[in-house]
């Protein structure tokens, strides 16, 4: 009976939109820099899922190629972002991300 339900592109697209929203809200409500950064990864993934779904729907290979770039960008961002985090935490050891005055002013 579950199999009788038809899986359409909209299922994926709505799921991706929900994941994107969760990531965006998470980034805004969390204070821990590492977790905020994970939320960005969630958002990028939601965008990737959207691209792949559209690629399938439009029968266009372009959408899949784009995801490839997103993955590279995400990897580079992670490398640099974590390096900044390590540099800052090394200087104020024992501090939580709360001490980094993110989003002030």
């Amino acid at each position: 009976m579950i199999a009788a339900l038809e899986l359409t592109a909209n299922h994926y697209l709505v799921l991706a939109a929900v994941l994107f929203t969760i990531g965006a809200v998470g980034l805004l409500i969390r204070r821990n820099v590492l977790v905020m950064f994970m939320c960005v990864e969630l958002m990028l993934n939601a965008a990737n899922l959207t691209f792949v779904t559209f690629a399938r729907e439009l029968d266009d290979v372009g959408g899949q190629a784009i995801v490839f770039f997103t993955l590279v960008v995400a990897a580079a961002e992670v490398a640099v972002g974590l390096a900044i985090i390590v540099a800052i935490f090394r200087r104020r050891r024992g501090a939580t991300a709360d001490d980094v005055h993110l989003l002030k002013g």
């Binding site: 909209n10 697209l13 690629a55 439009l58 266009d60 290979v61 372009g62």
Partner: peptide, 23 residues
């Protein structure tokens, strides 16, 4: 989210198919 649900029942992929070659 409300906007997404508003769009949920509709067609999202309205573009030209296979602009960069078929899958």
């Amino acid at each position: 989210l409300a906007e997404v649900l508003f769009l949920a029942g509709r067609t999202w992929a309205t573009g030209t198919p296979s602009a960069r070659g078929p899958l």
